[in-house]
């Protein structure tokens, strides 16, 4: 190991502290705002530690079922859960066979499909949103979960296929041979051989998919309009813009919307990192 000089050590630690502050402070401040009274937040000079701490903002968002704030927040939470989970489950069940096919049964024409898939999920949404909007309108699907689930699959299926394909590539192909000879079909092989081995990759793909669906704003803004289908990002955008003066409540809504994805990401930290990685290192 290379020894560091005292100065170098000092630089390392001070940059580490700086980095920690930069990462933590904005979110910490959001939290402080959420438990402060409006008066504390609108006095000058700004005091960093609130005079009295109250969780009333949280209560009015998730505790008081009769208020419209709580109603719109809780429904949005419900809609986000339904849409993100359904889109993820659906996408994975489509992506797994596709990824297997691309990895195990390559063909010249089929391999270009992978590149089409990659190009697909990188496509800017504005390129697709107009026909999707009018198609959903004529199918009577605007303001429903189905519209969002379908559209999100368009992004998640190619993404997860790509992610899984590069992971399946790492599994030795010999494992498939014996059961094939014994007469198993490909679906059985996927289910009994490939998936159990690829579990971590599957977890990473699912996690990335849920996070992407949870975060999506553009389609949700355009395809939903009320509590029946509106997801959290849209609810929060509406919420924040309408109540410019109520910093505390806005912040509390932000914190609440952050808890599910952040805690998920932390528990599955390894999966997240490997998910991010495979997207950038392999083709």
């Amino acid at each position: 190991m290379i020894k560091r000089s005292k100065i170098q050590t000092a630089i390392v630690y001070s940059s580490a502290i700086l980095l920690g502050l930069v990462l933590l402070c904005p979110v910490l401040w959001l939290f402080i705002m959420s438990v402060s009274s409006t008066k504390d937040l609108t006095t000058l000079p700004l005091s960093w530690i609130p005079a009295d701490i109250s969780f009333n903002n949280y209560i009015s968002l998730i505790g008081d079922f009769d208020s419209t704030s709580a109603e719109s927040f809780l429904y949005a939470l419900r809609n986000s859960l339904i849409v993100a989970i359904s889109a993820t489950v659906l996408s994975l069940s489509v992506a797994i066979p596709a990824a297997y096919s691309l990895s195990r049964l390559p063909g010249k024409r089929r391999s270009s499909l992978l590149f089409i898939a990659i190009a697909t999920f990188m496509m800017p949404p504005v390129a697709l949103v107009l026909p999707l909007y009018s198609a959903m309108a004529s199918l009577g699907l605007l303001n429903t979960h189905i519209a969002l689930i379908a559209v999100y699959c368009g992004v998640l299926v190619p993404f997860t296929t790509w992610l899984l394909k590069s992971n399946f590539d790492a599994i030795p192909i010999d494992l498939d041979e014996a059961p094939l000879i014994d007469g198993a079909n490909r679906l059985q092989i996927i289910w009994y051989i490939t998936l159990p081995i690829a579990k971590p990759a599957l977890g990473a793909a699912a996690l990335m998919a849920v996070l992407m669906a949870w975060d999506e704003f553009f389609y949700a803004l355009l395809f939903t309009n009320d509590i029946r289908a509106k997801t959290l990002p849209v609810a929060i955008a509406d919420f924040a813009a309408g109540r410019v003066a109520d910093y505390g409540l806005i912040s509390a809504a932000g914190i609440l919307a952050t808890i599910p994805p952040v805690s998920m990401a932390y528990f599955l930290q390894k999966s997240l990192v490997s998910g991010l990685m495979s997207g950038s290192v392999k083709g």
Partner: peptide
């Protein structure tokens, strides 16, 4: 957001 919401929800079967 009011104007755009009215316009966008016009094509929803249950707007």
């Amino acid at each position: 957001a009011l104007h755009d919401k009215i316009v966008l929800s016009h094509n929803a079967s249950e707007g």
